[in-house]
Design a protein around this nucleic acid. Structure first.
Length: 550
RNA sequence: GCGCCCGUAGCUCAGGUGGAUAGAGCAUCUGCCUUCUAAGCAGACGGUCCCAGGUUCGAAUCCUGGCGGGCGCGCCA
């Protein structure tokens, strides 16, 4: 980040005498092969026409100007069709350690969000049963995206939308009530359309424990309502516990029922009607989403008088924007992708930019054990329950796996592999790097070696492995920016694996604590300390712990 | 039928707003522990970036058309 910014400014200074400026499309990035230098820029190919000279000629001019005029640039030369390759001095890279140590846990923090309010809504599973592994993936991604955006300078709120209104909830109440009745009349059949999981039976027994036979004498509706209320509270409590165990925090639990109760849905209808987006047809109320990029209009109130799910969702999103969020992010299962155009249409109808709603689609998780698929149906087993998976593999492993893939690609989650403490689960690789560094620090303390990272003579860090680590450290803010811009935690995960790899190599090749060379020891210890701090920060963005020992 | 996503090494996957010889881990093979943690390191092997055209100085990346896989196309949620 610092290097790229610096080079962009230096190029600006070099271009000015020629009456040129660095184009916005110009790319400054590390070249494929590091023998070409530290950073390469393609600007000479882009500017050749404006400069009135061939790319290479322009590049020659810039190279000369850079290597003469910039103290931090050790070399600048021209390659290929006109790439400008730049190498910085070791001193330039060595300063990175100072920056990292000074900023500590804030190293890499960005002002990208500039204090804008962002909301991340995720999981939002219907409280009709326990969370399963797929919810876990959404939870890890939503939670990590929130952490990353916060780190990138957004004011972030996380939220869970509770679908506590409508058919599913009625069904939950009815299912529990039926199982309750079965406790008194074993011949009673299961509810055909109902939920059949074992937890429904547990809830029914709990209701009996609390109320005895009382529900048998109640009116159907009243008994079902009692069951629904009891069931939902119990299930939501379980979900909160699961989220807690998974190190996921939701700032707000938002009830769909509360939307209806507060008249927010009718309010949203009025809002849309005023702007001419609604019409009546066939006894139903329609939203003309086709005006806003959808491929068909959508019903908000059915001819039966019932509201559609979409109607409540519009009210919900209108409420989000009215709460002042500049950026609203929804994490959805990928099977809901067909829902995006109508939701974007709704946002536009609200007078917002469609881009202010971002949808992260999360593909399903394929749960395996030893390469073979584990049954996934909710009714057939509990293996896929998130709580069971976490008990087996642990939160760190599960989160790291989820966050090491793009959200929108299918994920094979093999319990045997994830559980294995091997390279099949790179979380250990990264955590081990951190633990190794902390171990060195402890050893130094035991030996009475004073490390004083602040006063270390960093100019002693001159070897290839020193510079490799320094350059990687310097790129951390870029990784954060990439992750924040694309709402993709896996950029952080990949960065950490690379930094950890360099650290392990460094550790193997360099004995850090060397009583015979106290100055070098201090310099290397300072470098390691910077690496540990960066790894800890990165792991924290993934919601993974950075252990002191392993 | 229409729409969205995906197709990269034996496996799992990065890279995808065009850039130099396409990367990482796993697996396989060969070396490295009297030395700060071997959950580690070094090296080898491994490719028609699904196919065919097109755009241009240059395509894994962009466009078109196919092939293969997933998902979605309700007055369901």
């Amino acid at each position: 980040m610092r290097a790229a910014t610096f080079l962009a400014e230096a190029l600006g200074r070099a271009l000015a005498p020629l009456g040129l400026t660095l184009p916005g499309r110009a790319v400054i990035e590390p070249p494929k092969d590091k023998k070409f230098g530290d950073l390469a820029c393609n600007c000479c190919m882009l500017l050749a026409k404006d400069a009135g000279m061939p790319p290479r000629a322009l590049a020659e001019k810039l190279a000369a100007s850079l290597s003469e005029g910039e103290a931090d640039i050790a070399a600048a030369d021209v390659a290929g069709p006109g790439f400008l390759n730049v190498t910085f001095t070791p001193a330039f890279w060595q300063r990175t350690v100072r920056d990292v140590l000074a900023q500590g846990a804030d190293y890499g923090r960005l002002r990208l969000g500039a204090g804008q309010k962002a909301q991340v809504e995720f999981v939002s599973a219907n409280p009709t049963g326990p969370l399963h592994i797929g919810h876990g993936r959404g939870a890890a991604i939503g939670d990590s995206v929130a952490r990353i955006l916060r780190f990138a300078g957004y004011d972030v709120t996380t939220e869970y939308y509770i679908n506590d209104a409508g058919l599913q909830m009625r069904l939950l109440g009815a299912s529990i009530l039926r199982r309750y009745r079965q406790l008194f009349d074993p011949d009673l059949p299961m509810l055909e359309e109902g939920y059949k999981g074992e937890y429904i039976g547990d809830l029914a027994r709990e209701v009996r424990g609390a109320h005895g036979r009382a529900l048998l004498d109640m009116p159907e509706a009243e008994a079902a309502d009692l069951c629904y209320r009891y069931g939902m509270d119990a299930i939501m409590a379980g979900i909160r516990k699961d989220m807690d165990d998974f190190r996921v925090g939701h700032d707000v639990f938002f009830s769909e029922k509360s939307l209806h109760a507060a008249g927010k849905v009718e309010e949203a209808f009025a809002f849309l009607r005023e702007r001419g987006h609604l019409y009546d047809k066939d006894g139903a109320l329609w939203f003309r989403t086709t005006d806003l990029g959808d491929d068909k209009d959508r019903v908000l109130r059915k001819s039966t008088g019932e509201l559609t799910y979409f109607a409540a969702d519009i009210a919900y999103h209108l409420d989000k924007f009215r709460r002042g969020f500049d950026l609203v992010i929804d994490v959805w299962g990928a099977d809901h992708h067909g829902y995006i155009p109508r939701m974007k249409a709704a946002v536009e109808a609200m007078g917002k930019d469609r881009e202010q709603l971002q949808i992260i689609l999360v593909q399903l998780v394929n749960l395996l054990r030893g390469g073979h698929q584990v049954a996934m149906s909710t009714r057939s087993g509990e293996f896929e329950e998130l709580s069971a998976v976490l008990r087996e593999v642990g939160t760190d492993s599960a989160r790291f796996i989820f966050l090491s893939r793009k959200a929108d690609s299918k994920l094979d989650f093999d319990l045997d592999l994830v559980k294995q403490q091997s390279m099949d689960n790179p979380v250990y690789y990264v955590q081990y790097a951190h633990a190794r560094i902390r171990s060195v620090a402890r050893k130094a303390g035991e030996a009475g070696v004073r490390l004083d990272p602040e006063t270390a003579d960093l100019s002693l860090l001159t070897t290839g492995t020193d510079l490799d680590v320094l350059k990687c450290l310097e790129r951390w803010p870029e990784a954060v920016e990439a992750a924040a811009r694309s709402l993709s935690p896996h950029h952080v995960s990949y960065y950490l694996q690379e930094l950890a790899g360099l650290l392990h190599r460094y550790y193997t090749l360099n004995k850090v604590l060397d009583p015979a060379a106290p100055a070098l020891t201090r310099a290397r210890a300072a470098l390691l300390s910077a690496v540990a701090a960066t790894i800890a920060t990165g792991l924290d963005l993934l919601g993974v712990t950075a252990p002191e020992t392993m």
